[in-house]
Each structure stands twice: as C-alpha cells, then as structure tokens.
C-alpha cells in the first residue's frame, strides 16, 4: 500500500508542478465550451438545451487529451521499466496511476463545471446534475482511456491514433452521462435509471481498464 500511495502522491505532485498537465486539461475544457456559442450562435435557449451535451463532450475530450502522457512519460525516462519490475502487481500500479490522473485532471473538470454552466445559462439543478454525472462518469473515461494510454507505449506515439482507438469505447459513458443530466433537467425519464447505469459503466471500466493496461504494458516494452 505504501508503494501505491507513494506513486499516487508522486503523480499528483508532478501534474500540479511546472510542466504538468492538470491545469491544461481545465483550460482546454474551458476553451471547448467557450467555442460552442460561436458555432451554434449566442442563442441562450438553444445553449441551455445543448448545455449538458456540450459540457460532457468537453470533459470527454479534455480527459482523453491529458491521458496521452499517462504511461509514455514514464516510458521515456525509464521509470516504467522499474515500475514493471517492482513487487507491486502491475494491475494495481495501473489502477493507482489512473486514480492519480483522475484526482489531478478529472476532479478539476468537475469543479470547473459550475462556472461553465453559468456561461451556458444552466440553472442550479442542471449544473448540479451535470457535475454529479461527471463525478460518476469521468472515472470510466479515465480507466477506459488508460488502455489507449498503455497502447501508446507500444505505438511510440499517442495523440490522434489514441483518440481514434478510445473514443468509440467511451460512447456508452457519453450516452448515459448526457441522458442522466437531461433526465434531471427536463424529464420525463427518471434520473436514477441512466445514472445507475453510468455508475455501473464506471465500475466495469475500473475492472477492465487496469487489466488491459497491465497486459498491454507487459507485452509492449522493448
């Protein structure tokens, strides 16, 4: 456990310091959301209706883009070799790295949601619903995206290819995240159904992600 705690502390420290990616993710999120009114027009009623979808898409892209370096940074400086050799099971190490990434890059997105909700004319209920669905859904994005991040070590590149591989896998999260937010705002569906499924998706990815990422790292080193 001390090993995992040390890893989480280190990763959070690095992402918050100079050169870290945590704040860039929030900045990207902000920029995507601010771009939307220029694309659809400054019609507040329309923006309110699209609000949850815009916020979810922004969060999806932001968390995916920051995931790019999750393993490649450790691979380039040789840390990954030592991590693979260590006495901690690689699956747990992967889970710890994803958790650290979520704490450093995912949580700020959720915290930024209320501010961005104001820009999109969402009321308090709607903002709370979006923030709650993001809280339940972003772990799924991180833990699914982690598979792509681990494949990026084999590929010697991430970026666009990683996005192409991972985005189709995150469609279910997007569907239920936006549906739960919409249900809370307009109904008629109850908020509970899609929200429970969203939580289930997060739990499933919590299991699949670390195993697939660990397998990918074991097979992908050279």
């Amino acid at each position: 456990m001390t090993a995992l705690a040390a890893l989480i502390r280190r990763d959070i420290k690095i992402s918050l310091r100079v050169g870290g990616g945590a704040l860039i993710g929030v900045l990207f999120f902000l920029t995507v959301v601010v771009l939307m009114p220029f694309a659809v027009g400054p019609d507040l009623a329309l923006l309110t209706r699209l609000g949850p979808a815009i916020l979810w898409l922004g969060a999806l892209l932001a968390s995916l883009l920051t995931l790019d370096r999750l393993f490649t940074a450790d691979h380039e400086d040789g840390s990954l070799d030592l991590i693979v050799m260590s006495r901690t099971p690689l699956e747990l190490t992967c889970a710890a790295k994803a958790l650290a990434h979520w704490l450093a890059a995912g949580v700020p997105l959720i915290l930024a949601t209320p501010v961005l909700g104001l820009l999109l004319n969402l009321n308090a209920t709607a903002t709370a619903a979006v923030a709650l669905t993001l809280l339940a859904g972003t772990p799924a994005l991180t833990f699914t995206g982690m598979i792509g991040a681990a494949l990026a070590v084999t590929l010697h590149r991430g970026g666009l290819l990683l996005a192409v591989l991972v985005l189709p896998l995150s469609i279910p999260v997007l569907i239920f995240g936006v549906a739960a937010s919409q249900a809370a705002i307009t109904g008629p569906l109850s908020f509970g159904t899609p929200f429970s499924i969203l939580c289930a998706l997060s739990l499933v990815s919590l299991v699949i992600g670390p195993f697939a990422a660990a397998a990918s790292l074991r097979h992908g080193l050279d």
Binding site: I147, T154, H156, R157, A215, H219
Partner: peptide, 15 residues
C-alpha cells in the same frame, strides 16, 4: 502504426 509485426500483434490483440 507499429513496424515490428509481433509487437503490433500483441497491441492489436489487447484492443
């Protein structure tokens, strides 16, 4: 995207 066939195979297998 991967030059070495056996490495590409393992990455593709996981995906």
């Amino acid at each position: 995207a991967v030059e070495d066939p056996s490495r590409a195979a393992r990455a593709a297998a996981i995906l």
